[in-house]
Design a protein around this nucleic acid. Structure first.
Lengths: 238, 238
DNA sequence: CGCTGGATTGAGGCCGATCAACTTCAGTGG
DNA sequence: CCACTGAAGTTGATCGGCCTCAATCCAGCG
């Protein structure tokens, strides 16, 4: 599969590349079609990408940055349903309902490629390799968030950190990364309060399992983090 | 989309029909290919369909019955990751990892259509309508289990019941259905104990919101169930 | 009829939520 | 550069919902 650890400032590092070329020299007929309809967009922090009940039209390939998708529940509370990072695609859920379900905002400066679904269908029909890649990406989405099924807070948080490190691909070592979302957002997503997040982060630091300096998290003992996520290890309180 | 309320004893009512015909009179070239590889299988109750780490090869279209997919966690406990009913497709998650992740067993007598993935890819490449339908089904899977994000037990259970009623399509009214899984399985899936499931079922009955006779559940006030799922209403304890 | 496993009901304990105080930090303007 | 401000993060004390453990009930079945 594609290597998402590269910089994603241009199409050449997009998750759809090389199926969705824009280099003029490489254009085929199908790419020509594609070129006319897709559109690069740059979102500022907190800028809204889409709103719920908006008719589904586009899939979005994230080139850099991060998105958060949330619903406003009937009781008025915000509930975060997912985060989307560079190399991933947002919008699949809306195929089923025909409308976007979530309010989606950029967590930081974010570059996305807007791809109309009709065009997308035509594109993957003409390119079996791309079709396979798309199904792969969709399958990935089905697998994300498995740690949400965990029962204890420390299991969920450990799983979340491991997931982040795998999906964020910090430039250097994957053991160090900067979550683009607030503790509040983490807690909301994991159905935990920011207080609980904070407490467990503190315990993880006291046990030298992670180190948090500024906004950066370094995993000192990822294997222990995995054990915690698996329910094989509990954090020492003392 | 297809109407899953029909009986599903033959291909004519499969979720892939009419894309995946077996009627000799309607065979096209692509169908011929398909005919040679797909295979109907009948599973007995508790019969295992697939095991974790088995290389991914087939997608399974469920014609009748129900499947439960679970993992055995590192700590040895069983954790149910999903239920699959007639008209749905099982196996998408495995595309990403290349191996099946779950132990999958039949909850009752179940008829499935085994479809090799390579053949599946070829099939949908040749049939844009089917491709669209597949993406629709995949998107549906992404939307299932949204009630798992709820915070309270009664919200989750109410959401689960509404989900069941929509996906089980009981022959007569959708307000009455028979969950094919035990309380234990429900609780495991929702991260609740069977005791909690039982208690809340009792409360729902005392409040005349549902009626449970034998294994059958009848929703007396589905709108209240929806309100509970949405966090707008709490069950009266008295 | 008794056996067996699931379902139900009750009593007490623990984990995470709630509420509140304090600290840290980013952003702003003097 | 520093003071001010408001939001985010941390830490502590208390509360409540769900889990745990246990007893009982019940349906299915030989």
């Amino acid at each position: 599969m594609l290597n998402p650890s590269q910089s994603r400032q241009s199409c050449i590092c997009c998750t759809f590349y090389p199926f969705c070329k824009t280099d003029a020299k490489n254009l085929h007929a199908a790419d020509q079609v594609n070129l006319t309809v897709k559109r690069l967009r740059r979102l500022k922090r907190n800028e809204i990408l889409c709103l719920p009940k908006k008719p589904f039209q586009n899939l979005y390939a994230i080139q850099s940055g991060a998105l958060k998708a949330y619903q406003v529940e009937a009781d008025g509370k915000e509930r975060i349903r997912g985060f989307y990072f560079a190399g991933e695609v947002f919008g699949y859920e809306a195929i089923y309902t025909g409308n976007y379900l979530f309010t989606t905002v950029a967590l930081s400066e974010t570059v996305i490629c807007e791809n109309p679904y009709d065009n997308f269908l035509a594109l993957i029909s003409s390119q079996p390799t791309l079709q396979k890649h798309i199904l792969y990406l969709l399958s990935q989405q089905l697998n994300i968030g498995s740690y949400l099924a965990a029962t204890t807070a420390e299991q969920q948080i450990a799983g979340f950190l491991l997931d982040l490190s795998a999906r964020l691909y910090a430039s250097g070592t994957p053991l160090e990364f900067s979550p683009p979302m607030s503790r509040q957002d983490m807690g909301n997503y994991l159905r935990l309060t920011p207080e609980t997040i904070s407490r467990i982060f503190s315990l993880l630091q006291k046990n030298k399992i992670i180190a948090a300096v500024n906004k950066t998290i370094r995993m000192l003992q990822p294997e222990k983090l995995q054990q915690i996520a698996d329910g094989l290890l509990s954090i020492q309180v003392a």
